[in-house]
Amino acid sequence: MDMVLVSLLPPAGSVRYPNPEAVVGVLWAYARPDDGLEHVRAAPGEHDGRLRFALFLAPSGAPPAAAASALFRRAIQSSPLLAGFGFDVVNGALGGLSERFGPGN
């Protein structure tokens, strides 16, 4: 199992976030079998309040960060709850930013 960390980015000019459990529900609603999603944990960041997600993925043909990006992109583009939001995917192995999608991009 692989773990990918994702931060939700608010729409420009906003600092409000949806309920973490609601976002987890949206992720499950838009997950596909090829995403390999097995577990999701959500928590606000300690210092900046951003919602952070740990996605636990079964090994699949896609790199874990790419699978997490595809799932978040699909959820943001499809769910009214996440309209205008973006995300950062952190490469767990390297600890660096892997992809940014959303506000400002």
Rank of each mutant, 00 (worst) to 15 (best):
P63E: 06
S98Q: 00
A75E: 03
S98E: 07
A54L: 15
V15T: 15
L97M: 00
P18N: 06
L27E: 12
M3I: 09
S60Y: 01
V26T: 09
L81M: 10
V23F: 11
P11Q: 09
P103Q: 13
V6P: 13
R74A: 04
D34V: 09
P33H: 10
W28P: 00
N19I: 07
L82S: 11
N105G: 08
I76T: 13
A42L: 12
P18L: 05
A68H: 13
A12D: 14
F85G: 13
W28C: 01
G86Q: 09
A31W: 02
D35E: 12
W28T: 07
G61N: 05
D48S: 04
L71I: 14
E46D: 02
L71S: 06
L55C: 10
L94G: 00
P18V: 13
G92F: 11
I76L: 15
L37G: 06
E38V: 14
L9V: 09
F53Y: 15
S69C: 11
R41D: 08
F56L: 15
L5A: 10
P18M: 06
G104P: 04
S7L: 14
V4G: 06
A68T: 10
S78M: 00
V90Y: 03
E38I: 14
E46Y: 05
D88P: 01
A67W: 03
D2Q: 06
S14F: 13
D35S: 14
R100Q: 06
M1G: 07
R52D: 05
A68F: 07
R74D: 11
R41W: 12
Q77C: 14
S98W: 00
V90A: 02
L97Y: 04
V23D: 13
L5H: 12
E38N: 07
R41P: 12
S78D: 09
A43G: 03
Q77R: 13
S79A: 15
S79T: 05
G25V: 07
F87S: 03
A58G: 05
W28S: 03
G102I: 11
L57H: 02
V23G: 12
P10I: 04
A66S: 08
G45R: 02
P44E: 05
G25D: 05
Y30A: 08
P103G: 11
A22C: 08
G96E: 01
R52H: 13
Y30V: 01
D48M: 02
G45D: 14
L5I: 10
Y30I: 12
P33R: 12
S78T: 02
D2W: 07
S7R: 15
L9K: 10
R41N: 10
H39Y: 14
P59G: 01
A93M: 00
S78F: 02
G84I: 08
P103L: 12
